[in-house]
């Protein structure tokens, strides 16, 4: 059986193709103002890697904030359930999943059967989401990957107090004007975002093992800060961290 899962996120579209339960192809494309083009591109890459055509797919399940902008899937599911299904398959010991996408952070409690027992989503403020990290890396004139590496160089504890992304950015600007070393600012941003994520995660009661997924989870600085904020000794970072929700959708399609 061949199934597909797709995650039409605010910033990127991800497609995963499963052939008899194994990943046969993946595709990712940046969605600009129109998600449709990215949808087609992500599909093209995934199909090419799997060496099949769209007609070979038995069923497609999709999720994501911009799902309404695309056509060509059979069923939809929530990001929360998609993440839970995927993580349970990847590591059945995972009890808590933190997913930080471009515009939203989610904390998900997963029961022993891989079902969602509770979830929390960050509310309107972007300060707990990937878009904020990106804005900050632009402000620091480094790539998002370099931003994390810079943060790892610092051990300073500079507080960013604002709960709002707009005010947090102005705090960063003040730190720049005070000629604070770049690594310290990068770490302060990672710590600030982690604090917000951690307080959201505590709403669902964080239980190990914990997995950290989503685009922002690629950042090494944020990984370290989050681990510290939640006082965890171990956090699980799956391979293909951005594809987790799409993988969950493909699993659902195969059910």
């Amino acid at each position: 059986m061949i199934t597909a899962g797709a995650d039409v996120g605010s910033k990127t579209v991800k497609v995963v193709i499963l052939k008899d339960g194994k990943i046969a192809g993946k595709g990712i494309a940046i969605a600009g103002l129109e998600a449709e083009g990215a949808w087609e591109n992500a599909w093209a890459d995934a199909l090419k890697e799997a060496g099949i055509s769209r007609n070979d797919i038995n069923k497609t399940v999709a999720t994501g904030a911009r799902l309404k902008e695309v056509k060509g899937f059979d069923e939809e599911m929530s990001m929360v359930t998609a993440d839970a299904m995927a993580m349970h398959k990847l590591n059945p010991e995972i009890k808590t999943v933190l997913d930080v996408g471009a515009e939203e952070g989610r904390a998900i409690k997963v029961d022993k059967d891989g079902k969602v027992s509770d979830f929390a989503v960050n509310e309107k403020c972007a300060a707990g989401a990937g878009a904020f990290m990106e804005a900050m890396s632009r402000a620091m004139q480094v790539s998002i990957e370099q931003f994390g590496e810079e943060a790892l160089k610092s051990t300073a504890n500079l507080p960013i107090n604002a709960q709002c992304a707009v005010f947090a950015e102005s705090e960063v600007v003040s730190l720049v004007h005070e000629e604070t070393p770049r690594p310290d600012i990068c770490k302060a941003v990672c710590d600030g975002v982690s604090d917000r994520l951690a307080s959201m995660a505590r709403r669902v009661v964080v239980e190990p093992k914990v997995a950290f997924v989503g685009g922002a989870a690629k950042g090494m600085g944020l990984r370290r800060s989050l681990k510290e904020a939640l006082e965890l000794t171990e956090v699980y970072f799956p391979d293909d961290i951005e594809f987790v929700a799409a993988y969950g959708c493909a699993l659902k399609a195969a059910e």
């Binding site: 599911m77 929530s78 990001m79 969602v116 979830f119 989503v121 309107k124």
Partner: peptide
């Protein structure tokens, strides 16, 4: 101005699914 209907509906959908 401080209420986002789409997002609230999205949360309700997720909650119902869970």
């Amino acid at each position: 101005r401080e209420f986002d209907l789409e997002r609230t509906i999205d949360k309700i959908d997720t909650f119902m699914e869970t």
